[in-house]
Design a binder for these strands. Structure first.
Lengths: 204, 204
DNA sequence: TCCTCGATGTATCGGCTCGATACATCGCAA
DNA sequence: TTGCGATGTATCGAGCCGATACATCGAGGA
């Protein structure tokens, strides 16, 4: 999942590790407080080894062995294979696409995919959250006399969050279906969000 | 975190692995879809090795070496040290106490701790969520022209969830302070939740 | 009687991720 | 010049997950 996020950011601009970490925080906001270095650097190394990213300044796909740790920071850029892999990951339909982390990352890069894929992912996520919701309803209905009040309150709060997310997803799906998509479906970032048909209330 | 959850459940009754998994699901509901076996069994082994749990039928604290894998299931029970450790973990105030998973588990076992601890944990969690909320507000206010509409929508949805959780926590804190605590603060489960002063709306 | 099948149940493996930690460099101010 | 905080790369141990293997048990049918 982190692979996808890194490839997505490097698709927008070359970056070094530290920068990547900060951009990741503003792009994914809610999903993870801040990405850990113990995750970031091994992932970068993995991506470089498999040829999906390279150091800025080298030809596409080339791997530069000892130059890596010259002095100071190392700037990475995405390679051609990296772009392919990114598109592939972004459009995939596995179960991990629909859990909290997976969906969040996919959603954050929705501007880089097409409407059909967006719809598929939104609907998959909705199904997932609905399942969770049903599970919680079952527990509340069937085990409420066996659980103490705090546990029950936790379930209710979870149920509330599920119901709210389903409503949010449904608004997004409706917008998507009616063509009110906020971004160009093409590859390059348009930088012109315009009206999004936002579903959140404005804050005072 | 899982340690705490397992000790908590075994405090209520002896159980074997599979059962533990199911009870965990109904107790933690929202927090984790279902606990993985790759997590559960190593954790059980770890707990047994450190003497916090033992196999049912053995004296408190004794460790039985080869009996483990006789045939069929292995029933575990908590030991005296395990109970101590549980109380310790439940009342602890580290940073991991306030993240999503940590807070959830602590909250699920609120009925087994005292009011002062509950209040401390609720307030710590509130602070944590408020920080996240401020971070999101910053991003939305300062980087909104740099982010595409989908990313922005993700931030708004996250912000909304934060604000809602803060309100929920504040209701719980108010209830707690005014002594409207739904459960007996004592050790044994009272099994009499009564009116909880619940903050969630009733469902139809 | 025997045989299969699904539910129950224990266990391990590889891989991702985290938190803590170490260390090196740079710019700036006392 | 010395020191110090921000920047930046990197590693380590351990927790947790998904997939997988395998063993047992009860029920139902040929």
């Amino acid at each position: 999942m982190l692979e996808l996020a890194i490839l997505g950011l490097l698709q927008e601009a070359p970056m070094h590790g530290y920068e990547l970490r900060k951009e990741l925080a503003t792009k994914l906001g809610t999903l993870r407080a801040a990405i850990s270095y113990g995750t970031l650097y091994p992932t970068l190394k993995r991506l470089q080894t498999s040829g999906l990213i390279g150091e800025a300044g080298t030809a596409d796909g080339e791997i530069v062995p000892p130059l890596t740790s010259r002095r100071g920071r190392v700037v990475y850029k995405i390679t051609a294979e990296g772009k392919e892999r990114f598109a592939e990951l972004l459009a995939q339909a596995g179960p991990e696409t629909y859990d909290d982390a997976g969906f969040g990352v996919h959603f954050a890069f929705f501007a880089r995919t097409d409407q059909a894929t967006r719809l598929r992912i939104l609907e998959g996520r909705r199904r997932r959250v609905e399942e969770r919701r049903e599970g919680l309803r079952d527990v509340i209905a069937r085990a409420s006399d066996r659980l103490d009040a705090y546990t029950l309150e936790l379930q209710r709060h979870g149920l509330d969050a599920c119901e709210r997310e389903v409503r949010w997803l449904e608004e997004l799906i409706t917008n998507e279906r009616s063509g009110r998509t906020p971004c160009s479906p093409a590859d390059p970032a348009t930088g012109d969000p315009r009206n999004t048909g936002s579903t959140s209330k404005d804050r005072p």
